[in-house]
């Protein structure tokens, strides 16, 4: 009985979370402009969606900026994580604190600060400013994804590579990067998703003629409800769902692998305290 109540509660919460999305998805197939009536099944809004040049061009901008920003942020962020991992004391603390700033700051503050910068530096608002802004808020998330992987590494791995004849750059490329690859990929995906999802920062750093999907949705939603947006929601929701499932399956496999690795060493670890420190 208690168990039933508990489960029902969770189902209610899920209903709250999913209901709006579900309603949007249903409406996206409704052949009627008015929401009160079910006018039969249609794919009309999907056709209109793909013919809508504003939406299509902002989709293109979103993907282009998301992908470019994610790749650049991943390169800079991964290198930064390696550097941070190897620095110490005040320097490390200072860098970490500044790194957290865009994560902790209200988005709108990051947004206006970048806007001021671009005006101040007389950069023309458009693709370039959007890209710079997105890279900036992505980097911390890449760093935060890669750092834990670095911390898990055997600290002698880099030295082992040098010992076997690698130059420092070679050791980084041939050993460290492959070893932390799962963290790098997580960071890349995270950065890409955050970019696609971002509205506030894009809103303040974009220029005339360049619009991301979020900005387009914002202006469309303010004008009233459009069935094409329902179709867009359905597609994006499905896309995100698939992406998340892929990421989670990957992670689960990764964890299982790690766990089996740990079990391997567990066989010997009980002896370690017994004899290792005798």
């Amino acid at each position: 009985m208690v168990r039933f109540l508990k489960r029902s509660y969770i189902y209610l919460v899920f209903a709250f979370l999913y209901m709006p999305i579900a309603v949007l998805m249903v409406y996206s197939f409704n052949d009627s402009r008015s929401r009160g009536v079910w006018g039969g099944f249609t794919l009309r809004w999907y056709v209109e969606l793909f013919q809508d040049r504003t939406i299509m061009s902002s989709l293109y901008s979103t993907l282009f900026i998301g992908a470019t920003a994610a790749v650049i942020a991943t390169i800079i962020g991964t290198l930064a994580a390696i550097g941070i991992h190897n620095s110490k004391g005040i320097q490390k603390k200072l860098i970490m604190n500044v790194t957290y700033l865009p994560v902790l700051n209200p988005e709108i503050v990051t947004a206006i600060s970048l806007m001021i910068l671009f005006v101040f530096a007389k950069v023309r608002f458009g693709y370039l400013t959007l890209l710079l802004a997105h890279i900036t808020f992505n980097i911390p998330y890449v760093i935060l994804s890669v750092l834990p992987k670095l911390r898990q590494l055997n600290k002698h791995l880099y030295e082992a590579a040098l010992d076997l004849g690698c130059t420092p750059a070679g050791a980084l490329w041939k050993v460290i990067v492959p070893e932390i690859m799962p963290g790098i990929i997580t960071g890349l995906l995270l950065a890409f998703t955050l970019s696609i999802d971002d509205f506030v920062i894009s809103f303040f750093t974009t220029g005339s003629g360049v619009s991301t999907l979020s900005i387009t949705i914002y202006s469309m939603a303010r004008q009233g409800i459009k069935p094409t947006l329902n179709a867009l929601s359905t597609i994006m929701f499905t896309f995100v769902l698939v992406l998340l499932i892929i990421v989670n399956v990957r992670q689960a496999r990764e964890e299982r692998k790690e766990r089996s690795g740990k079990n391997g060493s567990k066989k010997i670890s009980p002896y370690r305290t017994e004899f290792g420190d005798a």
């Binding site: 055997n154 002698h156 030295e159 082992a160 040098l162 690698c166 050993v175 492959p178 690859m181």
Partner: peptide, 28 residues
Amino acid sequence: PPYKRRVNTVFQRYALFSHLNVFENIAF
């Protein structure tokens, strides 16, 4: 630097490259 010394090391906790198999570890 270490990579120019005719010295090799067996590290504490081994420091094997977990992204490579046994053969590739030794072949490194």
